[in-house]
């Protein structure tokens, strides 16, 4: 088969593929069935009373469907450790050893030529870093009232950490941007999350139930706690990944 014929065959296969998928998806994407009201009506009527969170998305995310959120943080956890193991270490972390990527394998450091570290970048990010961190904590803690939540707050915190790391001098690093501490925060937050999730079992309110329901703690307190833990975990995890990719995973 000549190169040209092969090319045409290839294109024909692609076209067939896309056409078939389009034919299947058109009725789904273009459907004009009325959107169901049952869940919205139920939540608008009872959501605040049942969960205590006026942000209904948070109420679902960490209340009604908190188990999904646990799954999601686990996906993030696996993705972070997998990505770091694959990139920074060429997979050697997977095969053996404890501790963190050692300096020799941190190739990506060289992809960031020194000239990109301008004075401007260092000053701006160094000064903005703490502000971003504070904002992240705000987003994290007020997720039950306003748009935001643990995950979103955690991502902002992670960018704050990256700002701090970019802002500091090449070799200087403070305790917040040091990978060891970030890994510690992340693993401790993960353990805390699991404990919080199963604490309801011990107190009798069931798996992922509000553990202190009997003692007068409203569900919203539990949601805030989960928000804080998830924020810490996501912030530390993503921050660690970014710093490892910056080549500071020492």
């Amino acid at each position: 088969m000549s190169g040209r014929a092969r090319r045409i065959l290839f294109l024909a296969q692609i076209a067939l593929c896309v056409l078939l998928v389009a034919a299947v998806l058109i009725p789904v994407f273009l459907s004009s069935m009325p959107w169901p009201l049952s869940a919205r009506d139920y939540l608008q009527a009872n959501g605040l009373a049942e969960s205590g969170a006026s942000n209904l998305v948070s109420a679902i995310y960490l209340g009604y469907r908190a188990f999904d959120t646990l799954g999601e943080t686990i996906v993030l956890l696996v993705a972070i450790s997998g990505t770091i193991a694959i990139i920074a270490h060429g997979g050697a972390v997977l095969a053996q050893g404890y501790g963190l990527p050692s300096g020799t394998a941190s190739e990506p450091a060289r992809h960031l030529p020194p000239k990109t570290r301008t004075e401007l970048l260092e000053v701006v990010t160094g000064k903005l870093g703490p502000v971003v961190l504070v904002f992240g904590v705000y987003v994290m803690m007020y997720g039950h009232l306003s748009p935001g939540g643990g995950f979103q707050g955690g991502v902002v915190i992670a960018s704050g950490i990256v700002f701090l790391a970019l802002g500091s001098r090449v070799d200087a690093s403070n305790s917040l941007t040091s990978p060891e501490n970030l890994v510690r925060i992340e693993s401790a937050a993960f353990a805390l999350l699991l404990l919080a999730a199963s604490s309801g079992i011990i107190s009798g309110s069931g798996f992922f139930g509000n553990p202190l329901a009997g003692a007068g703690l409203t569900p919203v307190a539990f949601i805030i706690t989960l928000n804080a833990i998830i924020g810490l975990k996501v912030g530390a995890g993503l921050g660690f990944m970014c710093i490892a990719m910056l080549g500071r995973g020492k």
Binding site: S38, A39, Y42, L43, N46, E50, I60, G63, Y64, R65, A66, F67, D68, G200, S205, G206, F207, F208, G209, N210
Partner: peptide, 10 residues
């Protein structure tokens, strides 16, 4: 899960 309402819960 968590003894939430079955309308939205898992």
């Amino acid at each position: 899960i968590g003894n939430w309402s079955g309308v939205v819960g898992i």
